[in-house]
């Protein structure tokens, strides 16, 4: 055996390569493979972010050179009533849209998880509207939120004896028109909750049934705790995403329909943070102010992210954790 090995070794001499050259080659491949992402990150994220930070300390209209104004953009925003209204509206949308989305999404998912007849039809019907783009939804909502008896929503509330409302042009009403539309998005959360519900071991429910637990108690003590990671995920996505901090297209589409393209609806009643950023940048050509606003949004997202991170740590129940 040893003789054979020696013969093979003579025929195929093994060149001992240093650990260093292998590591170097691996590292080089690593760099090559990561490079496209890294270049993309530098070009489309890191450098624009740095540019945005710089611009936030300047006054810039895109046509002339930026001029340094220090922190005045940040201070100006703090005294701007439209900015403060936009923060209020964004948080209202964030809270209520997510309550609707998560609450009703979970409710529908729990019902459909019991495999009732026609479940596929209901699942598809409820899920499809969540695929509609916010701008398209805004166009569709034009008919729903129209004034007088002309609007479908007014016709609907009319059945309950409620007088027609001016959903988009009454300043106190407009933001609720955005929030109500969250019902159209419950299909998205429903699908994720359904997947989560299907993953819960049936034995827990069987054990609870033997103990005589009511459906409500089973929901509170089994379903909710075991869905906690998914709820936290949904909450995080909802608060930072398009139905939370980044809400923009839908109120913008509604404001445009209401005939208020120079403002964010009457009295800026449909204003949100990202919408106000857009208005400052692309309608008023105040890119310095828009950049400062972007950094405020980043700050708020960071704070929310930290809060949700601790919430997630507190309420996550994974099998392997003690």
């Amino acid at each position: 055996m040893a003789a054979v090995q020696e013969k093979i070794a003579q025929q195929f001499p093994y060149k001992k390569r240093s650990q260093w050259s292998i590591a170097k080659k691996n590292a080089l491949w690593g760099v090559v493979l990561v490079a496209p992402w890294f270049i993309g990150y530098l070009a489309f994220s890191f450098i624009p972010n740095l540019a945005s930070l710089y611009l936030s300390f300047t006054e810039w209209d895109m046509f002339s050179a930026p001029s340094w104004v220090g922190v005045s953009n940040y201070l100006k925003l703090l005294h701007d009533p439209v900015f403060l209204l936009s923060i209020k509206n964004t948080f209202l949308i964030m809270i209520f849209s997510n309550l609707i989305g998560i609450g009703f999404g979970l409710l529908v998912a729990v019902v459909l998880a019991k495999d009732p007849p026609g479940r596929y039809l209901f699942r598809t019907t409820l899920y499809l509207p969540s695929l509609v783009m916010p701008v398209a939804m805004g166009m569709m909502m034009r008919q729903i939120y129209a004034s007088g008896d002309f609007g479908l929503l007014n016709q609907f509330i009319g059945w309950f004896g409620i007088a027609p409302q001016r959903w988009l042009t009454e300043p106190n009403m407009a933001i609720w028109a955005v929030i109500i539309a969250a019902f159209w998005g419950i299909g998205g959360t429903m699908v994720i909750f359904l997947a989560g519900l299907k993953g819960i071991n049936r034995e827990y429910y069987e054990a609870a049934m033997i103990d005589g637990a009511s459906p409500f108690r089973k929901f509170i003590h089994i379903t909710l705790p075991l869905l906690a990671p998914i709820i936290v995920f949904q909450l995080l996505m909802g608060m930072i995403g398009g139905s939370g901090l980044q809400v923009f297209e839908f109120p913008a589409a509604l404001a445009d329909f209401a005939g208020a393209s120079n403002s964010m609806g009457y009295h800026d009643s449909l204003g949100t943070l990202v919408y106000y950023l857009f208005m400052n940048g692309f309608r008023y050509f105040k890119f310095g102010l828009a950049s400062a606003l972007a950094w405020y949004i980043f700050g708020i997202a960071l704070v929310l992210g930290v809060i949700i991170y601790f919430l997630a740590k507190r309420y996550n129940f994974y099998g392997t954790e003690e």
């Binding site: 034009r142 007088g148 002309f150 609007g151 001016r166 988009l168 209401a258």
Partner: peptide
């Protein structure tokens, strides 16, 4: 018509 009835009958 009321100026707020911009999207209406």
């Amino acid at each position: 018509p009321p100026y707020k009835d911009v999207i209406g009958p």
